[in-house]
Amino acid sequence: MLKDITLGQYFPGDTPVHRLDPRTKIICVVLYIVALFCAKWFVSYGVIIAVLTLCVCLSRVPLRALSRGLRPVYIIVAFTALMNLFFTAGEPVSDLPVLRYISQTGVYTALFMVLRIVLLITGTFLLTYTTSPIALTDALDQLLAPLKKLRVPVHELTLMMSLALRFIPTLIEETDKIMSAQKARGADFESGNLIRRAKALIPILVPLFVSAFRRADELATAMECRCYHGGEGRTALYVLRYRAADYAVLASFVLLAAGQIVLGRLGW
């Protein structure tokens, strides 16, 4: 049923990667992406792969979970590979029928593009696999805090994010219940053409929206009853603190990004 859908992909655990401050992890992922996009040749890609392998091993996230995360992008990866393979100008690999259209640069570009996409997705997934959604929003709240000077409602945005995350399971349960109730009245969601099926959703969507609004209203009242008045001067129950390990990891990722820029310049 609907309940079996996994939301967020957090794998609870107690590894060095899990224990890092969520802010550290977000910054590291940004630096990692910078490093990844500077990579040009085997040496630099090798460094990135080594770093990622180390992180994955430390986090003990099962490889199967990581490859499952990649599944939706397989098509894009395949498409990118083919495009680069056949549409990059250069010296043909050989004179044989099909290979005539493939250039040597094309082979390398295709390989590196595929590597880039896979590494990018695996790296960012590692973040969501090892950090709970709530920790992520807390971290974003603090990292984006400087934007408040520019009148960006950072706290409001992150609050909305965490509320949305909080209510997803509730809404799924509610949908399940409403679906059963309408099925008990003979609603049929499984047969008919597209239009009929879309129409069949009305008896679910209307009550769902009504109850979502009702819940939102109740939540707002409940928050106001507890004197919530926005982010101004608000303190956190669990204060995020950088520890020695965080500084060490941050420093290594800064080094990684800097090193990759240099390697990129050298064309390695």
Binding site: K177, A181, Q182, A184, R185, A187, D188, P203, P207, S211
Partner: peptide, 26 residues
């Protein structure tokens, strides 16, 4: 016929008449 707990949360039509007619129509 099964009437769920808190069945009022399943009402969805524009009028009560149409809502009661949902089952018989199906």
């Amino acid at each position: 016929g099964l009437v769920f707990q808190y069945p009022e949360y399943q009402l969805f039509e524009e009028t009560v008449y149409k809502d009661i007619a949902f089952g018989p129509t199906n």
